[in-house]
Computed example of a mutant assay.
Amino acid sequence: MEVPDLVGMTGQEARSLCRDLGLFLGYYNMDQQLPRSMVIAHQEPSPGTMVEPAAAVRIWTTLDPLP
């Protein structure tokens, strides 16, 4: 299975996509909650990497820029 490109997505979008693909989403912040006001800035493994089903994709988030 190929890892999707999650960078630039909101946490909610990434969680939904990974769930649909059968991947686990691991994220890093202080309270272990993925606020809706965050977007994904970096992920591991990189997009396009081939992984086994149920693999974990780790993400790091950043605050959305103000409109």
Rank of each mutant, 00 (worst) to 15 (best):
H42Q: 15
M9V: 00
R36W: 02
M38F: 13
P53F: 02
A56E: 14
G11D: 04
C18D: 02
P67N: 12
V7P: 00
Y28R: 11
Q43S: 01
G22C: 07
V3H: 07
P4L: 01
D5Q: 03
L25K: 05
L34V: 05
D20A: 14
P35F: 08
N29R: 12
E2T: 08
M38D: 11
Q32G: 06
P4W: 05
M50L: 12
R36A: 11
S37L: 04
D31L: 01
V39P: 04
D31G: 01
Y28A: 12
A56R: 14
M30S: 10
G22V: 10
R15P: 01
R58Y: 14
D31N: 09
A54E: 14
V39M: 10
M30D: 06
T49S: 11
S16F: 10
P67F: 10
D5K: 09
D31W: 00
Q12R: 13
S46A: 15
N29V: 04
D64G: 03
P67D: 11
P4R: 05
P45C: 03
L25I: 07
P65W: 07
R15I: 05
P47N: 09
M9C: 02
I59T: 03
M50V: 15
F24P: 00
Q12K: 15
P67M: 08
M50H: 13
L6Q: 01
A56K: 15
V7K: 09
S16Y: 13
N29F: 01
S37V: 04
L21Q: 13
L6R: 04
A56D: 08
L21R: 13
V7R: 14
Q32N: 14
L17E: 04
L21K: 11
F24I: 03
L66H: 10
L6T: 03
S46M: 10
L21H: 03
G8L: 02
Q12S: 12
I59E: 02
A54V: 09
R15C: 03
L34R: 07
G11Q: 09
V57N: 01
I59H: 05
L6W: 01
I59V: 14
L25M: 15
G8H: 05
W60H: 09
S46C: 09
I40P: 10
M38R: 13
T49E: 08
Q12T: 13
Q12G: 08
R36Y: 03
T49A: 13
E2A: 08
E44Y: 12
N29M: 02
A14E: 04
E13W: 04
P67E: 14
R58Q: 13
A14C: 00
E13K: 11
R36C: 00
M30C: 07
E52K: 15
A41N: 11
V57G: 00
V7C: 05
L25C: 02
Y27G: 01
